[in-house]
């Protein structure tokens, strides 16, 4: 197998394994659109990173976190429904990122790579980042698993029982922002949420406990990455979209499967 294929596979699997449990919580907490909004703001992070000559990954994490906090604060107001607010922020952030990038003269960058991912060109350095972040996400989630699950099931009940709800939520947002920052290299910011949601939604059909669902989601994600890469090499498809399509195919099959019995 060629070296670049191996690198792509490693990077993709690193992202998919972390996406399993993270995506399960995104689905349970109905944060699909929220995740999308954070992902779209990542482009603004890229632009600001270049502008201030800072580490791009760090800049993305900071922008995602700030936006997450802003969203949480703004969702307390009652005038606008949550999805309207998310729609405004999501596309506002994406547009701002595109405009800022366009203003930076002399910068030659691969915009399509950021939007749709460029998994076939990941470097050894990227892989180290992805695997390290993946491990961090898994370890962090394990740490806040119990309180976050209790909060997801019923916030007030959890709080009355003395569960530290706020640290768990903040921790989850931090992990989500980290995940987005490193996985945009693989599928791009427009497709990141699909990697969180589709494997988790597919895994629901086969799981009886929350942990099973997270684990199965990781496995399905790995299969989707492998299948997508294979299809990409075989038929010269764009790799990121191919991965997402394979995941969606799994979902459709599992859906029909369970309907049938």
């Amino acid at each position: 197998m060629d070296d670049f294929v191996l690198r792509a596979l490693l990077a993709g699997i690193g992202v998919a394994v972390a996406a399993g449990p993270l995506g399960a919580f995104v689905v349970w907490r109905r944060l699909a659109y929220f995740g999308d909004t954070l992902a779209h703001s990542a482009l603004l992070g890229v632009a600001l990173g270049f502008l201030f000559d800072a580490n791009v990954t760090v800049a993305i994490v900071v922008v995602c976190l700030l936006l997450a906090l802003l969203l949480v604060m703004m969702q307390r107001q009652q005038r606008l429904a949550s999805d309207t607010l998310l729609g405004i922020m999501s596309h506002g952030a994406l547009a701002l990122g595109l405009v800022v990038l366009a203003f930076m003269e002399g910068l030659r960058m691969d915009l399509l790579g950021y939007l749709f991912g460029d998994i076939l060109s990941v470097t050894r350095g990227d892989i180290v980042w992805i695997l390290a972040t993946g491990l961090l996400v898994l370890a962090g989630l394990a740490l806040i698993w119990r309180p976050l699950l209790a909060d997801t099931v019923h916030e007030e009940l959890a709080r009355v029982e003395g569960v530290a709800v706020v640290p768990a939520r903040l921790g989850f947002m931090l992990l989500l922002a980290l995940f987005i920052a490193v996985s945009m290299k693989v599928v791009g910011i427009l497709l990141i949420t699909s990697l969180l949601i589709i494997p988790a939604a597919t895994a629901r059909h086969f799981a009886r406990t929350p942990e099973q669902m997270a684990l199965i989601a990781s496995l399905i994600g790995c299969l989707a990455v492998s299948g997508g890469l294979l299809a990409s090499l075989q038929w010269d498809l764009p790799a990121g979209p191919a991965v997402v399509l394979v995941a969606a195919l799994f979902f459709l099959v599992s859906f029909g499967w369970r309907r049938g019995d």
């Binding site: 349970w28 009940l157 959890a158 406990t209 929350p210």
Partner: peptide, 12 residues
Amino acid sequence: LPLTVRRFLTLG
């Protein structure tokens, strides 16, 4: 969210 009654009771 796949959750049994047993799991729900022991969440706290």
